[in-house]
Design a binder for these strands. Structure first.
Lengths: 234, 234
DNA sequence: ATAGATTTGTCCGTATGTATG
DNA sequence: GCATACATACGGACAAATCTA
């Protein structure tokens, strides 16, 4: 592992365990170079990660202050699979696959992404149960020229693990948007709501490391339980 | 201005104007050091900013690929004032102040933030009209020990300009969350909706550079027009 | 399949600028 | 004014990924 990652994890652990308590200063960058026996640039890389993840606030002339915000959750921000989130927050989860078939590329994708109109996609619909209640309905559209098929046992587990570990793909970034919209019939059936109720839709356009588009996901959430958190910086 | 900021802005302008077109590579870091006559570290700082703002994708061994995503909007992400957003997207905006008075610190803030129960806050309610329609209702709770009062002409303009330019405060970061909830009576009146309708609430806890909490904002948006976008990285 | 060239990533050391107390 | 701490910038070295001949 890289030095700055190792140091980041060490500092993160020490903040979490209270060795560096909230609203106190971390050791100065100079002291940290001595503690870890690395250059100041390396320390600064680790501190930048800590800041990005909300653990500290940097202040020129003063020091790096430990915050207590990092405990907050980031369930939607970033690119994480449902399985990763479930493991982090340890809630009981069940997934039911209700569709897994090849289709022609949908029109709305053709409008946004420049691809061959004859390309095929895999359409996957999965219903997520948390505490025996349907909380999320995931629609995945996966580019078949990149991933020819999704075995059913993979669909029931983590398609991201399959992409990254088995197929060796590198997922790089996603363009996400979310908003509220009227419930579809499928939403009504599974969420047990009415036609004039709303759901929250999280749309993601996911890209590989070489910038090829390979997946669109629409996650539909109950209004009452959806929540998004982030730390924004000026 | 700092060198890396100047270079960032120059590259951003060249990407926007098409001098560096989408899906081509930027000049290599080595070439850029010659173009701008700075060190490679400085160039890399500028490139990191470009990546963070979604203009490029970095690939070790290959280069920095120009993306076409940066045109997308970021109306909620980050800390921006309503005025700044309105200016960027050039929509016609009107603000109406419907409350501006001092109150005791509300209970829900005491629960989350560790402050004196006798402290006072300024409660500001402002209604935002876009194209002559109410789109946003902003509730601001501003810590009176930091900002004793908000003159009415400031409330009608930008309170952030007032904080930063006139009072010399430095806003550092905010903890944000958003979710859907039932419309209050005020929502119903101004949005002209019903009691069982929902609105989107964006809550922000805003902190100064020295980590003192100084403002809470609840922005209430219409369900139909609310939209959030971001670029997430794995 | 391999070797070499190119490009970005990591790391080091040093110097100077700027904000804080 | 002074010491301390973070911010910016420079230059050099090697590692890792990518592409090409």
């Amino acid at each position: 592992m890289k030095k700055f990652e190792r140091i980041y994890q060490d500092l993160e652990a020490k903040i979490k365990s209270g060795i560096y308590p909230t609203s106190t200063l971390l050791p100065s960058e100079n002291e940290l170079t001595k503690i870890y026996d690395v250059s100041r640039g390396t320390i600064r890389q680790s501190l930048d990660m800590l800041e990005k993840h909300g653990y500290i606030n940097k202040q020129q002339g003063k020091g790096n202050i430990v915050l207590n915000h990092a405990a907050y959750t980031f369930p939607i921000s970033g690119i994480k699979s449902y399985k990763e989130i479930a493991q982090e927050y340890q809630f009981s989860v069940e997934t039911k696959v209700i569709l897994n078939k090849r289709i022609k590329v949908p029109a709305f994708i053709l409008e946004v992404i420049d691809i061959d109109p004859d390309e095929e996609f895999i359409h996957l619909i999965r219903v997520r149960y948390i505490h025996d209640k349907v909380e999320i309905i995931d629609h995945d559209l996966i580019r078949a020229s990149v991933i020819p098929e999704i075995p059913d046992d993979v669909a029931n587990n983590s398609i991201y693990e399959y992409f990254e570990d088995d197929l060796g793909l590198t997922i790089s970034y996603a363009h996400k948007e979310f908003f509220a919209e009227k419930a579809t019939e499928l939403d009504q059936d599974y969420f047990e709501i009415n036609a004039d109720d709303f759901v929250i839709t999280v749309n993601s356009f996911v890209y590989l490391n070489d910038t090829t588009f390979f997946q669109f996901t629409a996650s539909r959430h109950r209004l009452e339980t959806f929540k998004f958190q982030e730390i924004a910086r000026r």
